[in-house]
Design a protein around this nucleic acid. Sequence first.
DNA 1: CGACGTTTGTTCGATTTGCATACTAATTGA
DNA 2: TCAATTAGTATGCAAATCGAACAAACGTCG
Lengths: 401, 401
Amino acid sequence: MLVSTDLRPNETRALAALFRAGALSRAALARDLGLTRSTTGALVLGLTEAGLARERSDGADDEQDGEGRVGRPGILVEIDGNGGFFLGAYIGVNWIAAVAVDLAGVKRAGASRVFAGPGSTPAAAVAIIKELVAEVRSQLPAGTRPYGLNVAVPGFPAADGVSYHATILGWHGVNLAELLVSAFGDEFPILLENDANAVAVAETYRAQPGQDDEDVLVMLIENGVGGGIINAGRLHRGRLGGAGEIGHLRIGDEGFVFDAKRPGRLESYVGKDALLARYLHISGLRVGVDEFVAAIASGDPAAVATARDWALWFGRGLATLTCTLQPERIILSGSVNAVYPFVAEQIEAFLSDFLAEGYPVPSIELARVGADGPALGAACLLHQAALSGDPQFQLRGLAAR
Amino acid sequence: MLVSTDLRPNETRALAALFRAGALSRAALARDLGLTRSTTGALVLGLTEAGLARERSDGADDEQDGEGRVGRPGILVEIDGNGGFFLGAYIGVNWIAAVAVDLAGVKRAGASRVFAGPGSTPAAAVAIIKELVAEVRSQLPAGTRPYGLNVAVPGFPAADGVSYHATILGWHGVNLAELLVSAFGDEFPILLENDANAVAVAETYRAQPGQDDEDVLVMLIENGVGGGIINAGRLHRGRLGGAGEIGHLRIGDEGFVFDAKRPGRLESYVGKDALLARYLHISGLRVGVDEFVAAIASGDPAAVATARDWALWFGRGLATLTCTLQPERIILSGSVNAVYPFVAEQIEAFLSDFLAEGYPVPSIELARVGADGPALGAACLLHQAALSGDPQFQLRGLAAR
DNA sequence: CGACGTTTGTTCGATTTGCATACTAATTGA
DNA sequence: TCAATTAGTATGCAAATCGAACAAACGTCG
């Protein structure tokens, strides 16, 4: 009879090692885990029978050094993606999305729908998520049960830890977790995550094999400015998952848009509204980000001057964040990041000038993940938890008993 | 024959659980580790024979609930401090210190000496550390070999990861690690850590039993302003251990002390020099921190006004850091923290006003650890690494073979 | 006070896990 | 063709853990 069995600690460790490396021979895996080859062979056999790992079929191998490698070549073993699935969802201002990531960390399915965020109720959003999740699950192999659902939201839990405030959606004090649980039952655990944090995970998770302990700051720049902090490959969540609210950074006295209560914040200088307000002030033209970027590209002096002002304040924010977090990379996400390439030199010069001598200057890059980044990152967080041995997402395999 | 043997994984986990809880019965430990009572009994027996754990002798027990606890009471087991020692040292501007922390996380020995930092060579500092370490080791039980030495330094490694810059000591591009290794040989591993990071660990490590995953920001305010970030109980080091350089936070345009190259930094508003310069500007008096604090206490209007200005900028810095990191607590260390109590109300009011609605306001506390905080924290970092199973600090026990 | 339920610690055999040591297989280099 | 080297597998043994039993030590309640 086939039964679902919990994985033993070393089986989970083996999967994590395979995930980090992409694929390993049994011998390499043994070295990685500090076990003998015989033990590792048995481990791989178990994982293979359980449908969680498989030998790589395509002849491609010798990833490691290829050249003067003497001795019998190994058979690469990799994770079998079909071994498990993790669901992520995103409640955005304009749309709602759901995705599934498989055991190999690859996106396997996705669905989305437009959503009139402000004005809609949380219950309406949850209903849409329920439909999208069903749609996503229908795209997965039959008979699979996901390990969990993580929902990215543009907001934060309040000090009590449960009531969500999503100002941008007009939601205050909503118990989203309860709504979701009552919609989905207890088939799998349900978590919530801030959208900027999720994007940060999506941008950095498994960016390159073997590199899983980076220090990265991801900035998400739209009207507001959010951020996600990755420390040694892990999300720095803060007390209630509210770390990285970098739009509230106090970097000056006023701002390009006026805010009587909280003047001088980063997002009142570098957010989308602020940028366009500055351009309006200089040029007298009211435009969107795309038009503005086109104006810089065409050499419009007002646009160039606006971008220069924007870069001045953006550089201040970057300097503050770099000192505080010392990231290796800073990744810019959100529509406003299109402005960055035009002022990259200015900002990088300012940064290396402002930072102390010898202090490493982070490299600044543009985002690679698309619009479903928050949903993807949310799912990746579950994947990470499962491969880390988190008991809440204890991996299972099918075994003959 | 007695031989030194490496601990098995579950023995290390058991010690970590005992450390977290302070003391546990075998049954409680079994629940904590997810093992059976019989296995745990054997585990405890092994640890006891190896001299790493012991039954608590003082009759004091029932820490847990005492009241209606039915059933046979357990025998509390705790870590035997003599099971191992961890060395920490600190190279300060005016003095050098060394301490030893035992396996139970308790400071067991210390020694210090004055040191004319600026003007002295790194080699001279290393020679003093060598003497102090010998002095500290002589205070420990005979025959013990420490697991490692961690040296806290007021500086950071440069982008290459090895050459240290300690501007405050006048050192640039020094390979401190190499100097230390050549002085001590390879008897035990030697590490380096920034002093503010070390203080942060000293202030938070084992602050209260059972609470080991806090989010805390520790600010160290002297002439410069440094910081250490504790995320989920772990030091957030950044790429090269240089995270938390919060003195460079850009919060304004100028500063109370002038800095042409990097104007507007937090430390040019709230550092010791800045504070006293502001007081000089207002009162015409040139004083030290102690006198300044006495002046506030006595109601001197110039001092009170200075403190109010100080608090204004300090609040801006706190707001920025709170948004970025969302700590539960902020701990103020360094001599300037004596000013805080006089402006606590003002700063807390500003903070809860500036932060978004529902955003948790961190509690702000004064430091508890004394002047050897950096050395203590450095030693605690090794203790933490050893109990986490870091192979570099693999715990050992004495066992009959 | 004593029977009863509950929890702890220990004992002991069974089971599982991992290691050491072989051995075969597949490749490079001479 | 023949070492040398590395990968994978089989097998017996040692260690770690479990499961079930049992005695010990405490509350509770009649």
